[in-house]
Amino acid sequence: MMPEVGTTAPTARLPRRLGAVAAEPRLRRYGAERFEPAWLSLWALAIGRDTGETLAWLLAADNLPRAMLMAGALTSHPAERDGALVLEGGGPPTLSQFERWWLWERLARPRRWALRVMPATLRPVEFPLWLGYAPGRPGRHARLIVLSGLSGEALGALKPAVLAGLRDRARAEAANGRPSTRDDERVPG
């Protein structure tokens, strides 16, 4: 069971290191013709030594098949409205789920055996993304490209979560009869 201290912590945002100007050509290379910024809510749990030193973070949600691994400190700032799309990534995975993910990571790369998950560090975070849209044409479906706002890499592993978030959001909007309040501004440039 996850400790209360983590799940009640306020949501923080990871820094968006990749701006629109840098994201645009990357998305274009993947065939996108339109794009917008987004945030995906995930759960972060620290990986570190028994001494308490934090070395990396696992980022996951209960409906993702695998955790993402992020090296170094989790630099974040409080979530503020910036007009970007905010998507729900899913609920917090259990501690045993995090431990199992970490076990598989270590089996793949045994050097990491000395590091442990640190249960008390669980916190919600919002992960910066750039969403690219490749339009549908006759005989071809419209495609979504998910780009990390941290590194600029395409993150296919997050695509199911992003699509699920978009679907949930569309359903909520349909039920409310109005658009969500957190994506009412367009991305610059």
Binding site: R28, G31, E33, Y133, P135, G136, L163, R167, A170
Partner: peptide, 30 residues
Amino acid sequence: VIDETAPDMQAILKGRSDGAAEIGRDARLT
């Protein structure tokens, strides 16, 4: 199965795409 090929997802993506900023010329990296 690629999730976005479902008809409802195609409609959602089209809706979001229509409101998103434009990029420009198509060039496929892969």
